[in-house]
Design a protein around this nucleic acid. Structure first.
Length: 274
DNA sequence: AGTGGCCCCTGGCGGC
DNA sequence: TGCCGCCAGGGGCCAC
């Protein structure tokens, strides 16, 4: 489940790969409904002979900036991933699109078909609604506090709202709340400022640690996050609560509980989080 | 207008 | 052993 750290990991690998600044030979969109703003044929016409200048990230969005200054926005959603393959390698099952460059192929693999590609001259139109980047220095606890004051939802739901802060998903929202000692069901607008400061710091630490570990890969199934070359991330041992329902809390030894909040499964320690 | 709920998909797995 | 039904959760959209 790619969240900010997994998307950032893919971005960093892409930047160092042979797919950047190499002329595109062809693009094969094998699942056209994933495309927005362009047909497969028109995309091929726009990209052929051009190259990717750089790859940026905003929240969970990847931005492929082409030398024409146009942008291919990619959202991995639940199971999307990029895999780098050698020239001539055939498509694998669930490969939804392939970018062919000289010497290398970039395969977009997406089992559940939730991933989206948007071809646009104006990426801001699709990114404007996003809240601040949690790892940017401009993101201040005061602003976070103001955002949380505006909503009566529980803090878990507020953390998943990309307009409050961009990039958190279910795993890192649970982990951030655990690190800050805040109960996921607590109303967002009723958290004291000093505790919002703790949560602000926790979000940053959890995300930065996960990026350092190159993301979280759960289980061994096809749907799980893999790096550009197929290796899993290494963040799993850092998880304190996510997916650990019934296990003991690493801080107090109590039992981790699970409940459903806003249609999302939520894991927390009833002793440590209040 | 903010918010809860449903839906899109598919593979893996628990239970019978 | 085999099959059915549930579960995973990001985000768009709809209804209240």
């Amino acid at each position: 489940m790619p969240e900010l750290p997994e998307v950032e990991t893919v971005r960093r690998y892409l930047e160092r790969s042979g797919a950047v600044r190499a002329p595109l030979l062809a693009v094969d969109v094998r699942w056209p409904p994933m495309l927005s703003g362009v047909t497969p044929m028109a995309l091929q016409r726009s990209l052929k002979g051009r190259w990717i200048e750089r790859v940026d990230r905003r929240g969970k969005w990847l931005q492929f900036i082409w030398n024409t200054q146009q942008t291919l926005l990619v959202h991995l959603r639940m199971t999307g991933n990029f895999i780098l393959r050698d020239a001539g390698d055939p498509p694998a099952p669930h490969d939804r699109a392939i970018l062919y460059f000289k010497g290398v192929q970039l395969h977009f693999h997406d089992t559940r078909k939730f991933g989206r590609w948007i071809w646009t001259d104006c990426p801001e139109r699709f990114l404007n609604h996003l809240g601040p980047e949690p790892l940017a220095s401009e993101w201040a606890p005061e602003e976070f506090y103001r955002q949380l004051k505006k909503t009566r939802r529980c803090i878990k739901s507020a953390l998943l709202d990309q307009s409050v802060v961009a990039g958190l998903g279910n795993i890192y929202a649970d982990e951030s709340l655990f690190r800050a000692g805040i109960h996921p069901q607590r109303r967002a607008d009723r958290i004291a400022y000093h505790r919002v400061r703790l949560l602000h710091a926790a979000v940053r630490e959890v995300l930065a640690d996960a990026i350092r570990m190159e993301g979280t890969s759960l289980g061994g199934g096809l749907t799980n996050f893999r790096q550009l070359y197929g290796q899993p991330g290494k963040n799993q041992p850092q998880l304190n609560v996510y997916g650990r329902n019934g296990s003991s809390c690493p801080a107090c030894g109590g039992t981790i509980r699970r409940r459903v909040l806003g249609q999302r499964s939520t894991c927390y320690c009833p002793q440590c989080q209040h």
